[in-house]
């Protein structure tokens, strides 16, 4: 099913929150989901997998932590044992901000180059690996992709969509009479 990126980001944020993450972390999951989908790299399956096994080895934890701390990657940085490694990419991109450098990133079966606004995949068969993977990151000169494809929609995988909605549903309060009366317009004549 075709989703707008904003709609998909919001769904993933709610799903992450529904899975037990704090709101701030859930916001980051939404941004990561949107970031990958912008390049057509995820249809919900990577996010669902990562949400289900969220812990301190997970890219959804390590990515924001690395992004907070910042690094220049002048020398190769090794990140061992990263679960859902592909989800490091949006956080690394966020970290680059307006910096005029690119990063070369690889793990077994995957090699890619990332700048603050572009992504180029050199080897992709290991991209969707759950890991744990040993990620290597090194800065290189600014890379400019030619005809970089950007997606403005995401076709969410049907099974992933069901799971995302199940998690998201946990953020919605059950409907009760009191709740219904707390909605805007409740108890008023709105047919006039």
């Amino acid at each position: 099913m075709s989703y707008s990126l904003g709609e998909y980001e919001d769904l993933c944020k709610k799903a992450a929150r529904g899975s037990g993450m704090h709101w701030g972390q859930a916001e980051e999951v939404g941004k990561a989901a949107r970031g990958l989908s912008t390049y057509g790299l995820d249809d919900g399956r990577l996010i669902v997998t990562a949400i289900k096994c969220f812990n301190e080895e997970n890219a959804l934890w390590l990515g924001p932590a690395l992004c907070d701390a910042g690094a220049d990657f002048k020398y190769t940085v090794n990140l061992p044992g990263v679960v859902s490694p592909a989800l490091m990419l949006p956080f690394l991109q966020m970290m680059l901000g307006d910096k005029d450098i690119s990063l070369k990133i690889d793990w077994i079966g995957f090699e890619g180059i990332l700048s603050s606004s572009e992504f180029f995949c050199l080897r992709s068969e290991g991209f969707t690996e759950v890991g744990p993977a040993n990620i290597r990151i090194k800065s290189i000169e600014k890379f400019v992709a030619v005809n970089a494809n950007r997606c403005s929609r995401v076709n969410v995988d049907e099974k992933a969509l069901i799971q995302l909605n199940e998690f998201a549903y946990k953020t919605y309060a059950p409907s009760t009479h009191e709740s219904r009366m707390a909605g805007a317009g409740a108890g008023l004549n709105d047919n006039d």
Binding site: A173, S175, E178, R180, G183
Partner: peptide, 13 residues
């Protein structure tokens, strides 16, 4: 909060 009822935003006690 958000209600499961058509995802209506609500303000409760």
């Amino acid at each position: 909060y958000v209600s499961e009822e058509k995802l209506e935003p609500r303000l409760g006690e």
